[in-house]
Every structure is written in C-alpha cells, then in structure tokens.
Design a protein around this nucleic acid. Structure first.
Length: 1111
RNA sequence: GGGGGAGUAGCUCAAUCGGUCAGAGCUGCGGGCUUAUAUCCCGCCGGUUCCAGGUUCGAGUCCUGGCUCCCCUACCA
C-alpha cells in the first residue's frame, strides 16, 4: 500500500529526509558501482574558489554539472564525479591578510611566510568543507570528502604540520605528515575532491613550464606594468580587464619652460601628476600642426587642434609650425632638482627634450604628451626605442623611493594636491580640472593601479601574423603557440556558439602570458635565475629538483612545494655551475586550474587511466572572464603538452543577478545567501529555476521567481497526491510490475494510451535535449507534460478513480496514472533529484520491492516507454482539446456555465488523419457537458469549405500572384477538384499545397480554429435546467462539506429545503450518492447543522448537512 | 577606438527556412472550474516588434544608416 500523501508538501523537510536516506543506503556509491567499467562519460570540473561560502550563483553552475552527470549516469555511463577546489592565489592571501589586520607585504614578512602560507591552506580547508556541505545540500552528487575530515586536517595542520596522521583512502589507510596528506588530497590513494594546491598539481605545472622553457618560450621581461600598491604585485593582462572602473582624476595642464626660447613654454597635459617627477621627455606628433599663442605675458606651444579644449582665457596665435620642427627642443623639467632625476640624467648626459611619437593625438590634452618611461607601458616602449633614461619613482607599496626629496616615502597617488601646489609655487602650473575616465583597479582589493617598472616572467604566445588565419602556413603555425591553440579551439564544440569566436578573438589579441607574482602563497615558480652568467634553468618536477639540488634539500624534504621551504633549495647553474636560488615569485593562479586535465587524471602516474578519461566530454562554467582564464589556461597547457583539445564540448552560461536586475549586493537588499535559499524555497525549486533559465542570458534570481517555479512543481505534486489518496481509498496496488497491459482494459483506453504516449514523448524529447546540453529544452517539455497530466488527463479521469466507478476502468486509470507518474519521475530525476525520489519511493519502492530502491538507480526511461508512442493519437487529442476550448468560449459568450448540460454540440473536424475519433468525440462530449456531439460536414448549413493556402510551400512559385490568391481563398472564390487540388484565381494548387478546412458560414454563432468548428445548442429544456440545478446543488453541497472540514469518506445527513416545483426530486438520489449522504430530508434543517443558500434556476434552496454516525 | 550580441505588451520572455492574424507567463479586471490543486481554465485590457530607409508578392526575422543597452577587446597621456 502507498504511504499517505499530504496536500501541502514541505519540500525542504523532504529534502533533508532524502539526504539522510541516501547516506544510509549508500545510494550514490551503489550507483557508481552499478556503472563501473561501462562506457565512460568524462566530466571535468572547473574548480570553485575555496575562499568563501558558496553563493546562489554557484548553485546555478552546480545544477548544470549535477544534472548532466546524473543524466549520463542514467544512461549507464561510468563517470569520475570529482569536484575541484581552487586553492592558491592572491584571493586567499587577501582574506588571510584581512583577518590578521595586515596592510602590506612587510606585515607578512614580519609574521613569517611559513605560518602565513599555513593559514592560507587552513582557510582553503575551512571553506572546502563548508562548500562541500552546501553542495551536498544542493543534491550535487560527487565523490565528496567528509567535511568533518577536512576540518580535522585543518586543525591538525594548525597544531603541528609535521605530526603523523592516518586517513582512510579508497584503497586503504594512508599515513603521512599532516602537511603531506593535505598535499595529496584528491590523488588516487586519498580520493575525494581535487585541490589545486596538491603536490601533483604543482609538480605537473613545473613539468609544463619546463617544457615551455625547452622550447624557448619562457623569458623575463623588463617592463612597466600595472601594479597594485596594496598587494605589492603586478597584474597580468588577464586580470586587468576585471577591474576597470569609472573614476575621476585630476586633468592637470603644466608648462615646461623652453631653455632655448626665453619666455616660451610647452603646455603638457597629464592625469597622473605623481608621474611628473619621472618625466624625461615631451612627445609631439610629427605631422600635427603646433602653434605658439600669447596669453598676457606668456607664450605657450600646443597643438593647433587642441586650442579650444586646452587653453583658458583669450589668446592670440603668433606662430605655427609642424611637430617635426619642434623635435629636439630642450626644456626645464618640473622636478629637475631632485637627486634621482639629476643622477638619471647625469649618467647619460641627457637633458629634457621634445621627441616625436606617432601615437600623439589631439582629442584630449594639448597635443604634447608627458613621457615617463618608468610610469607607463607605452612610455616605456617609446623610451626604449629612443634610448631615453628611465626613472622608476615608486617602490612596491607605491611610495616614492629615495632620491625624490620631500616626495620620498610618501604614497604617490595620495600626494596629488601637494604636487600641484608645489608646481604652482614654482611656476609650472597652468590649469587643473576634473577628468572622468575608466581606470584599471586591482580586481581583488579595488585599489587603483599604478604603473611601475618591474621584472616579470612570461610565456611567449608566439607571433601574430599579419594575414587571415587561413593563409597562415603549417610552418608558421608550428612556430607560434597561439595559432596552435586556435587549431585546438576548432576541434571543440562551443555552447553557445559565440564562445568559439570569442576565444579565437582573445587568442589573436592576447599578449604574452605573465606568469609571475611577487607574493607568498601559490605555485612556486621553478625558475632558477643565475646572477653569475645571466642564464636561467626551469626545473620540471620534484624529482628533478632533488637530483639537481646542491644544498637545502633537507630543509625542503617533507614539505609541500610551497614557500618558504622550497626556497631553501639551491641548484648549480647549468651554464656556469654557480649556485642558484629559486626566484621568489609565485605563479599565476590560472596555471593551477589549467593543469587539471592532466593532474587530476594522473597524466604521469597512470598514463593508461589518463588516456581513458582525456579529453573531457564536457566542461561548463559561467563564461564571463573564463575565455581568457580557465578555458584559455586549459587550452594553452593542453596544446603545449599534447597539441590536442582538453575538452570536447564547452557549455558557458551567463551571470546571476538579483530579482531587480542588479548584481546581488547585501546593502541593496537583493542578495540571497545559498543556505537561506535552500532552507526557504528548497533546492529542487532552485534547481528548477536554474534548469529552466536561458543559459546565455543573465538570470534574475529572487523569491518571486521561486514562487513561480514552486507553483509549477506543486501542480505535479497535486497530481501525485490525488493519485495516492484515491489509490489508497480504492485499495489499488500495482500487480507485480509497472505494466501498460491494464490500460487496454479500461473504458477510456484512448485517454490512457494518450497520456502514456505523451509520457514517452516527454522522456524521449527530454533525453535528446539533455544529451545536447540543453537543460532548458528539457524543462520546457516537462512543463508541457505536467500541464497535460494535470489539466487534461487527471481532470478527465477523476471520476474513474472514485468509488463506484467501473472496476476494470478504475484499475486501468490507476495503472495508467501510476505508470505515467513513474515515467515522469525518472525523466525529471536528473533535474529534480529530491522530488523525483519522493515520488519514486512511494510509487515504486513502497509497493514493488523487486525494483531498484532509488529513482537514481534506474535507467533513463526511454527503453521502457518507447513502445507507448502513438503520435496520431497525440495529434487527435490536441484537436479534442481545441474543440473543448472553443465550446467553453461559446458558453462564456452565451452565459451558460459549464455545469449546465446542453442538448447538442455540432462539430467539424479538420481533414487530417485522426486516430480514435469515437473516443475523441466522447471526450469532447463529456468535457463540454453536452448530451450529444454531432459531426457536421460540407453538406451542413453551418459550415462552408475553406481553403488554407500553405504559403511556405507555394510562396516562391506564386510570387506576386500571392495577394490575389490569398484574397480569393479568404472570400471562398475557389474550385475544389476530386484529386484534392484546388484552382484559385486561375492558379492550380496541388493537394499538398493547401489544407481544406471547415469554416463557419457567416451569420452563425460559432467558434473556429485551425479547421475545427464548434457550434452549441443554447436552447434549454426544463429537463436540462433541472439537471443543471442538480449539479449546482451538488457543487454547493461539496463546498459545504469542504467548509465543514469533512474527510473525503465522511458520510452525512443532508437537508434540502425549497425548490418548490419539485424538479429536483428526480436527481436527489444521485446527488445523495455523490455527496455521501445517507439520508436526504426535504424539510428545514436543525439549528446546529452547517447550512448555506444556493441560487438555482428553480428558486433559492436552503441546504444543510451534519455528519452521521459517530462523528 | 575596434569587434560581437541585444532592443518585441507595465514586467520576464517566445515566435522553425522570411509566410500574411506577433504569442505565453506574471500583474490588473471579469467569468468559470458538478471534492486533486490557496490550483487551474476561459475571456478582456495591454504592441508604431527602438527609429528611418531599402530588398521582397510578403519583414519581428534579411540589408543600410541612426539611437539605446550589454558583453568582449584596446597603451591613449
């Protein structure tokens, strides 16, 4: 027997119950065992940053990851189910610094690098545990570590990283120091999620870098780079774009007095006054026109095209020259007295002068550009080309270094006002105004970036050829990594397809990959830069390092490859033999995530395993940013190591916003925490919202949207609750198996066959959509089916399931609905793992012990349901539904309630092939509540024959004749031929170019749609009126029962007082039967009975009821 | 600055190869639903498909120009 079902489900409580049940029954482990060794489907997880609790936006991606993996598991495919955590990088450091109250790198050095790195690892373990708990709550089935075990390791790591610990791995216990066990997380002997801080991950990146070096692609660049003064590190091109923000800076115009032209000055514009101390030149455009203007006693040079925007007050132009003639003019710099400037200029015997630069324009400023090669990337390039001296004025923290007089030690960006007033006093100032522009900020801490002269390490991405890609020769591709990556991109399916173009665009435009960061926690770059000879070595792994070590190995032994221990090891330079230390830089974190197609698939330890699971069939992430981050890093690393694609299909989805369309932000009140969402709306509701979102559009997430999703699931719940309630009342249980055989025994066989056909079509269609990574398509099909099931099948079948129905028919109805619900439960299992399981547990497990004890252990349903398909019957039922809609429309117009029976309905059906027409007519008759349905044809006075011209078929052929033909068809001016062809306006259309349809004759009250014409008989006989009254009475009694809070099977005594003409009497016994009345009295009810008044055609009637028996 | 995408009802979104009448849901109003459903159904209100041209028998859809928004990309001081 089924367990009773509440009409008001508590989804959240059900989800918690199922999480417990799955854990107890080891359902997931059994699923994995069931599929082990089968054909593989390889999903590769993009690592989630283990730095904070998971947000609802993560739940979007994790819903996709889970549902596609579950779908493939139902196909019987073997999967790895490995989650990944992104563990290394500045974002972790920034948070640990914040917790410790640090403000600069000096604080970290004073605190101790070893302890700082350990705290970073501890933070990762803390949030890996947290995110694991949250993911499990979401129903995300992965090979999770026990969160408590992760926290235990964290605590042990904090207490003493060197202590021995034993943990349980998949192949038995593993014993090592805590530090090394943490370093082995995710590896085969330890199991669970992969962690990018693992030894193997770091080691394989070393191998990758060594391979790059072997090919000559690693180099050290000396360049002016964007620099974050808070983090004390440069930012790569990938990171730069994340942080552009609108900002207001000073737009400062200064004058540089010309040394050889007394009284004359250059006018120069800058938005970074702090860089003026590093000025070495002023650039003009060779072909631009420059003018000398007089303002009072002053003479200024500037570009002619900038006069209006740059000058303040009246002026007179006194001279004009092309920029080329200005070149070489000497001028007095704004900070010439500073020792650093004197030193830089003195060494090269240099003086400030005007130089030519073809990048100079007139759109902004004065057309004369302040050049400080130590403070700007393009300035540096120009300076290098012209051999100008370079002045690097600031240190890691953004403070002026020694030699800048009163500026030294002060923070460069904060000192703008002091610099301006200083310039004013010394006569260099001309004008100041606010200037709004987009300026790069540090994407982690939000600090505005400065440009600073630094050494960083790069991987060369290879030349960009100045020709279309299809003209690049194979030899040229072999010489340029970026083109090799592009070839790999061609092999991949990009969803949505614009991803393909976007990735290629990035590859064509990207510059070399800056891989170094002057920080503490992260991949230790294995670069050993020899000061003695200037050559450098790149070590390809821990073993190689051990072999090459000449000192410090003992200090490193037993530690993960992190700072500071790895820094102890020195090797002998391969060129000159001198001892060399590792550069202290750590790596770009995208190296960590990019190597996972190799490190997590045991590329080195188990090549056979690797070749089975590589490339991944599927990866998915939110695409903002990832085309130049994770997607790119994997492509680059896979191309270098294998020159093949690391994944076959990539599915990207957009961004999650609050319900108001703005980014979620706590202070805006539109943010929803994952935990709150899970415990208030339930994760299945959340998953339904995500699965039915358009992935390439942003999703607006909020409580109202959740309510809509919940309502949809409630409809399904109600069908299920109805079924169980009545199956229990009727004592129905399935006989042995779920079987369609009972269906044909029922009186409503066509209806039953129809819903089963729809269930089969839904399973088939949803499977096709899921196989194509289209969750939205699958949910749309499911939604339609739920609607069919609820508003059509159940609506028409309710009577059949009540007591008193024909027993065989009743069994057929139960059997059908049971089978349909189970098919649906299996179809929605990947998307709604909880709701589907709740249904399955009751519909199957509680009554058929021989079947799998979880819906998630069943196979995808199409094999079982394919034979249920009857497309012609589905088409036929669609016609019936349209006809009933039309009848209801007509009733509405005529003011006749549906419960008022009518004598007749006339119906014309379209000329198409329809299955089970008799059953269809009966459905229409019952639903339209008429005594008889009469089919009408051409001969009827109610309809005409019309012709619908199928435009897509004939459009091209008819061309300009179309308007005339269409007009004639509309007016009925055509001639039908016996073979089905039609002549209209002299054009003959073949039978398959038109559809002959019934159309209403003018002047009749009819409704029509797509060849279906419905007419109702609106005349009411006394008998019909009485029957309508009886139904109205019955409905009122049922309402009253509900008001009285009676159970479905409570029996009553009924009073019906009034309705004096006696027309009701003939129906009272059937009313009594329907309302479970043992006794019907025709007199006034006692005072204590529950009563109401019903307005009937025959007059007002007073009804009352009271439970009978022991109630 | 360069490239891509989008613009459809008050809101969120549909509309197959260009096919003649642009549809759903939400919101609002009216009606209905003979005991699953605080649910659903029917109807009404609501549209210059961003604007202006063009191609075509026919344009939400294709082309050109403009406007607005989003994304990607870029060294502009």
């Amino acid at each position: 027997m089924f367990r009773p079902v509440t009409a008001k489900p508590d989804f959240v409580a059900q989800e918690h119950d199922l999480l417990r049940a799955w854990a107890e029954r080891r359902t997931f482990a059994r699923l994995r065992a069931q599929n082990a060794g089968n054909e593989r489907w390889s999903f590769l997880d993009g690592p989630i940053t283990a730095n904070n609790p998971m947000g609802v936006h993560h739940a979007w991606g994790r819903t996709y990851k889970d549902l596609f993996q579950r779908y493939h598991a139902m196909l019987g495919q073997d999967e790895r189910f490995q989650n990944g955590f992104d563990c290394q990088g500045l974002w972790v450091e920034v948070n640990v610094e914040r917790d410790l109250g640090f403000t600069s790198k000096r604080d970290i050095e004073a605190f101790g690098i070893a302890e700082f790195v350990s705290l970073c690892k501890q933070r990762v373990l803390t949030f890996a545990a947290r995110q694991t708990e949250q993911s499990i709550r979401l129903g995300y089935w992965m090979d999770w570590n026990d969160p408590a075990e992760l926290l235990r390791l964290r605590d042990l790591l904090k207490a003493d990283p060197a202590q021995q610990v034993t943990i349980e791995g998949p192949n038995g216990p593993v014993t090592d120091t805590v530090e090394m066990v943490v370093g082995r997380l995710g590896m085969p002997d330890v199991g669970g999620s992969y962690f990018t801080f693992s030894n193997e991950n770091n080691d394989l990146i070393w191998a990758f870098l060594a391979e790059c070096h072997r090919r000559g692609w690693i180099y050290r660049g000396h360049d002016t780079m964007p620099w974050c003064p808070r983090c004390g590190t440069g930012l790569s091109q990938m990171e730069l774009n994340e942080g552009y923000q609108d900002r207001e800076d000073p737009g400062l115009t200064v004058r540089f007095p010309l040394l050889d032209r007394p009284g004359e000055s250059l006018l120069v514009w800058t938005t970074t006054p702090w860089t003026l101390a590093a000025n070495v030149a002023a650039a003009v455009g060779e072909d631009l026109q420059y003018v000398k203007v007089r303002q009072g006693d002053d003479l200024y040079w500037l570009a002619k095209g900038t006069l209006r925007q740059a000058l303040r007050g009246p002026f007179t132009v006194v001279e004009e020259r092309p920029g080329a003639q200005l070149a070489g003019w000497r001028y007095a710099g704004p900070f010439d007295g500073l020792p650093a400037v004197e030193r830089a200029f003195g060494e090269g015997a240099y003086e400030h002068r005007v130089v030519l630069w073809d990048e100079v324009g007139e759109d902004e400023g004065t057309g004369i550009v302040h050049i400080a090669p130590g403070c700007g990337a393009e300035d540096f390039q120009l300076g290098t080309a012209l051999g100008l001296p370079v002045i690097g004025p600031i240190d890691e923290d953004g403070r002026y270094v020694e030699g800048f007089g009163w500026l030294s030690g002060r923070e460069a960006p904060a000192i703008t006002e002091a610099i301006i007033s200083d310039l004013e006093q010394r006569g260099f100032f001309y004008h100041l105004e606010a200037y709004a522009h987009r300026y790069p900020h540090c994407w982690r801490c939000g600090t505005p970036l400065l440009f600073r002269l630094v050494d960083e390490w790069y991987i060369s991405m290879g030349e960009v050829y100045d020709k279309p890609r299809d003209q690049v020769t194979p030899a040229e591709v072999d010489a340029s990594l970026r083109y090799q990556i592009m070839d790999v991109v061609d092999e991949i399916r990009w969803i949505p397809d614009f991803g393909y173009e976007r990735e290629l665009d990035w590859l064509l435009n990207m510059r070399d990959w800056m891989i170094s960061k002057k920080r503490y926690y992260g991949l230790a770059l294995p670069i050993y830069d020899c000061r003695a000879c200037g050559r450098f070595d790149v070590i390809g792994g821990r073993q190689e390092l051990r072999a090459r070590a000449i000192e410090g190995w003992d200090a490193f032994e037993g530690h993960t490859p992190h700072r500071p221990f790895v820094d102890q090891v020195r090797i002998a330079c391969s060129s000159c033999g001198e001892p060399v230390s590792r550069i202290t830089d750590v790596g770009n974190p995208w190296l960590d995530a990019g190597i996972v197609p190799f490190s997590t698939l045991h590329y080195r330890e188990d090549p056979e395993y690797w070749s089975k699971w590589f490339p991944a069939d599927f990866v998915t992430e939110s695409f903002p940013g990832q085309f130049r981050n994770w997607f790119y890093a994997m492509l680059a690393m896979s191309t270098v190591l294998r020159r093949e694609a690391p994944y076959k299909a990539l599915f990207g989805y957009a961004t999650l916003f609050g319900e108001d369309g703005r980014p979620m932000h706590k202070s805006w009140g539109n943010a929803i925490e994952f935990d709150e969402a899970a415990e208030r709306m339930g994760v299945d509701v959340m998953r339904w919202m995500y699965a039915s979102a358009r992935p390439d559009d942003n999703i607006l997430f909020g409580w109202h949207a959740a309510d809509e999703a919940r309502r949809e699931l409630l409809v399904l719940w109600n069908v299920y609750a109805f079924f169980v309630t009545y199956a229990r009342l009727g004592g129905w249980v399935p006989e042995g198996q779920i079987d369609r055989a009972t269906v044909d025994a029922g009186a409503a066989a066509a209806l039953d066959r129809w819903i089963l056909s729809r269930a089969a079509a839904t399973a088939e269609g949803a499977g096709e959509r899921l196989a194509d990574f289209d969750a939205l398509g699958a949910t749309r099909l499911v939604s339609t089916f739920i609607d069919d099931l609820s508003t059509w099948y159940l609506r028409l079948s309710r009577r059949r399931m009540r007591s008193g129905a024909d027993p065989a028919d009743r069994r057929a109805a139960f059997g059908t609905l049971h089978a349909a619900l189970i098919a649906l439960s299996r179809t929605i299992a990947p998307i709604l793992p909880f709701l589907s399981e709740t249904l399955y547990q009751n519909l199957v497990v509680s009554v058929i012990p021989t079947l799998p004890d979880s819906v998630h252990l069943t196979s995808w349903p199409t094999d079982d349901t394919a034979s249920w398909r009857e497309p012609a019957l589905e088409a036929s039922m669609a016609v019936a539904r349209s006809a009933v809609d039309l009848a209801r429309t007509l009733r509405g117009q005529a003011g006749l309630k549906t419960r008022q029976p009518l004598a007749r309905l006339w119906l014309a059906l379209p000329d198409r092939d329809l299955a089970d027409v008799d059953a269809l007519l009966e459905v229409i008759r019952a639903e339209a509540n008429v005594k008889a349905v009469e089919r009408i044809g051409d001969e009827s006075e109610l309809v005409d024959r019309g012709v619908k011209v199928l435009l897509p078929k004939v459009g091209k052929r008819l061309g300009s004749r179309i308007p005339a033909v269409m007009a004639a068809a509309r007016d009925g001016r055509f001639e039908l031929h016996p073979d089905g062809s039609v002549t209209i306006e002299g054009e003959t259309l073949a039978a398959d170019e038109v559809e002959v349809q019934a159309t209403p004759r003018p002047g009749t009250a009819v409704a029509h749609h797509d060849g279906i014409v419905v007419v109702i008989d609106t005349s009411l006989t006394p008998e019909l009126r009485a029957e309508g009254d009886a139904r109205e009475l019955q409905r009122a009694i049922q309402d009253l029962r509900k008001d009285a809070g009676l159970e479905l099977d409570d029996r009553i005594t009924l009073w019906v007082h009034g309705g004096a003409d006696g027309s009701l009497d003939a129906y009272l016994s059937s009313v009594a039967a329907e309302t479970l009345a043992d006794d019907v009295r025709r007199d006034a009810a006692p005072e204590d009975a529950i009563a109401a008044t019903v307005r009937l055609d025959a007059g007002d009637v007073r009804i009352a009821l009271r439970p009978t028996g022991g109630a």
